[in-house]
Nucleic acid binder design. Sequence first.
DNA 1: TCTGGGGTCCTAGGACCC
DNA 2: TCTGGGGTCCTAGGACCC
Length: 433
Amino acid sequence: MADASSQVFALVDVNNMYVSCERAFNPRLRDRPVVVLSNNDGCCVARSNEVKALGVKMGTPWFQMKDLVRQYGIVGLSSNYALYGDMSNRIMMILRSYSPNVEVYSIDESFLSLNGLGGLWPSPTAMGQAIRAQILQWTSLPVCVGVGSSKTLAKLANHVAKKVPLFDSVCDFTNMSAARERWLFERIDVGEVWGVGRRIAAKLHDMDIHTVQDLKNASPRDIRARFGVVMERTCQELRGLSCLALEEVAPPRQEIVSSKSFGAMAVSLAELEEAVSTYIARAGEKLRAQRSVCGAVHVFVQTNPFRQQDPQYSNGLTVPLIEPTNDNRILAGAALLGLAAIYREGFQYKKAGVMLMNLAPGAIRQGTLFDAPREREKSVRVMAALDALNQRFGRDAVHLGSAGLAPRWAMRAENKTPCYTTRWDELPRALAN
DNA sequence: TCTGGGGTCCTAGGACCC
DNA sequence: TCTGGGGTCCTAGGACCC
């Protein structure tokens, strides 16, 4: 077993994955600026290099790009996740022929352990170029390869491979002179480091830590005091001390979410029920596929936060299950029960979703059928009581459930209203007080 | 008019117990 | 009258990732 100081990792990452997949099957897209769009063709989730060069950010709404689309002939494509998943699998198969130790990190990225493979290749760079050529030939997808003595360094090397043409898409920090590495690190913003997001980058800048080299030079103790153990690890990894191991087998999910924005607003409870039933079916499939049972079902709904002129409402409720299960009828019963409790008339709903929580290992299981009609009637009585309270204390003085599990950005304004939070099973007691 | 859909980990603070 | 302290569990929230 190699010790931490002699680890070598490679990160293989597909350039502009979704766009490249589309181009693989439609060569006419190769010389054009292309974006792939999210659900309902709402936002841009992948950009070709031409579009990045125009300054279009990840997540830009499609309708805000109309001028650029006219001016530069940008092609907008609806996403095709089945295709991307299939292409991903092909790449991962190729990578497994290069190293027995592969961690599939995301749909377009994998870490490889290169430990003990030194004798097979003249250098990691030669291996990286071989990988790149084979993937290009077999799938038409362009990849970049970064090599480093920690995952964080491999990530950073991958960034350099992408940005600096001199490296020809493969960058190896493990065979680079200290001076050259330092020269590079002094010219890369600290925000490019894996684990340093917008907020932390801003704080680091305030501390006069601007470049990768600055962070590498910082004292891990200070970093830990200011940012916690995660950033301390990042700092150590930059110094070449591997703290994050290769995770070859994906652990089972700890929660499973299924949610979607609606193309057209939903108004009635029946519309939301239909959507939520679909989400439960999808989440339940994933739950059973990983052979887990679920201890609680969270359901949430939300109006369109971008339409501030409309009355806003967002709410969520966690319904604990008496016994953990993966029986779809029970999951659906619980979700619909929760939905009935948080549904309010008079709003235009933009989004709904479910989250399966408190997951634990468990076999496929049949449960007792939920007595939905009776529970539903109970929830209607509870909602009547809540409405009475709200009439007495002013509209929306009392909320059911906690909204915290729905997307935060949409919730903040809403949460400023006095909010009474409770769990479904505690509701009768709460109402009695 | 039109604004994605998933996940993870860590921490602080409160409830509760002894 | 004097009014502890440590451990554990849970939740909400903040940060990050793709």
